[in-house]
Design a protein around this nucleic acid. Structure first.
Lengths: 235, 235
DNA sequence: CGGACTTTGTGAACGCAGGCACGAGCGGGG
DNA sequence: CCCCGCTCGTGCCTGCGTTCACAAAGTCCG
């Protein structure tokens, strides 16, 4: 119930946090980082909600899952909240990632320095094409996908990014799992399955565009009872 | 209630389709395209569910929102279902898209030919940097962001993709809206708001990685009552 | 020192989404 | 022609997520 007063660093018993809340935490973190930059020391749930694009009650409920870190009548201490959330999200140390597939997307991800800055350095690039192996992109050497077990062990990498063509996605995922990766972010337009207990998320650009197309279609169409609704951006 | 028997092309009164269903339709379409390629003419909800990575009852419920296009005791006609879903999603014609921001990501998106093939040709690239204007990427000329209204009008583009730095995202979104774009896909790590009635979706790589980091953290941590749960891939 | 004001934390209600289970309807075989 | 088996379509139930509304708790000022 305190922990803030005593500035306790202990984690409050790892309660269960709803997935929807977990998905919003990174947004709060980013917002808070911006506030910290401009020397804001305290923030109310209402203002944070506005900046993060959600409901104020939602913010309070989300933050309450982490613990009672607010002060009634005042708000939340930006730095302290940031610290707690970073710890909860595991952002207190780096998470090296392995990118599989050096195509257009893989190259862009490798060149994009933003990951490293945000705590997700690219540990290695892998590809199945022997002709690409040995070259480097963004200062990172491309290695063969067969080396995955070694790479994972070398870098203690637990997160894999699949940026291969759809046909290779499941195979690469299986290899990653076998090599010890336990979190996968899949960009390939294919359904990938992983064993229980692992994390899998997907980002599918074509799907996103087609969802937009659906609502666009309904708006444009001179049809019947079209119920215009905002295509809720992210659940 | 029939429409399949008579091969009717009329749309069944545009009932309301839940957003969760809309998000799965593109996956079904992709799966069906694969089936059509290998000359499968009929598919059961169970098999389609397996291929799409969802529950069979879910498939049937989803498809029932479109109409009663199945045949009891048999399944769904692949071609016909594909036709209906494509029409519903608005994939019967192209949707030109405008990409704003020619950085790493913008370049990758422009170079990636997959969009054009899937019905989302890149109509134009825009950037605020005069030095980039006039150059071309992937065969598409870069124009200045001030030209947005003209570009939208020329190409009848209704979909915009934001691939700018976070700081510019809201401004670009506002310009797009003013120019007549009514669907936006935001890749910038920033909260963007648009007027009611418009569609906005976001894809945030840092957020995705941080969500993975959260669950990874909980798995790795030698802490208390960690409840290992799969980080549900996409809602 | 006390009272008014502010903001959190959370109980309760509501709505959406997912999954089971079963009736309805269609095709095929005898 | 009838019966059997298969698969769709959907009513119902359950669980999750969101929002409202309010009591609890702290601050500030006179």
């Amino acid at each position: 119930m305190e922990g803030r007063a005593a500035r306790s660093v202990k984690k409050p018993a790892a309660r269960h946090i709803p997935e929807a809340t977990v998905a919003r935490l990174p947004v709060y973190v980013r917002t808070l980082l911006g506030l910290a930059d401009e020397k804001t020391s305290t923030i109310s749930s209402e203002r944070l909600a506005e900046l993060a694009g959600v409901n104020a009650a939602q913010v309070r409920k989300d933050l309450s899952y982490l613990g009672s870190y607010g002060t009634r009548g005042v708000g939340y201490d930006v730095e302290y909240l940031l610290f707690q959330m970073s710890r909860e999200l595991g952002l207190t140390h780096d998470w090296p990632v392995i990118i599989a597939g050096v195509g257009n997307l893989g190259r862009a991800l490798a060149n994009y320095g933003g990951f490293g800055e945000r705590g997700f350095p690219v540990a290695a690039l892998v590809d199945a094409d022997p002709k690409k192996v040995g070259k480097a992109i963004g200062g990172i050497e491309i290695r063969h996908v067969d080396d995955l077990p070694d790479i994972v062990a070398e870098h203690h990498a637990a997160i894999g990014i699949i940026a291969t063509p759809a046909a290779a996605a499941q195979d690469v995922a299986d290899r990653m799992v076998a090599a010890g990766v336990s979190s996968i972010l899949n960009f390939a337009p294919a359904i990938v399955t992983v064993p229980d207990g692992m994390s899998l998320r997907k980002v599918d650009l074509a799907v996103e565009l087609q969802i937009l197309s659906f609502y666009q279609q309904r708006r444009t169409e001179p049809d019947a009872d079209r119920t215009v609704a905002s295509a809720g951006g992210e659940g």
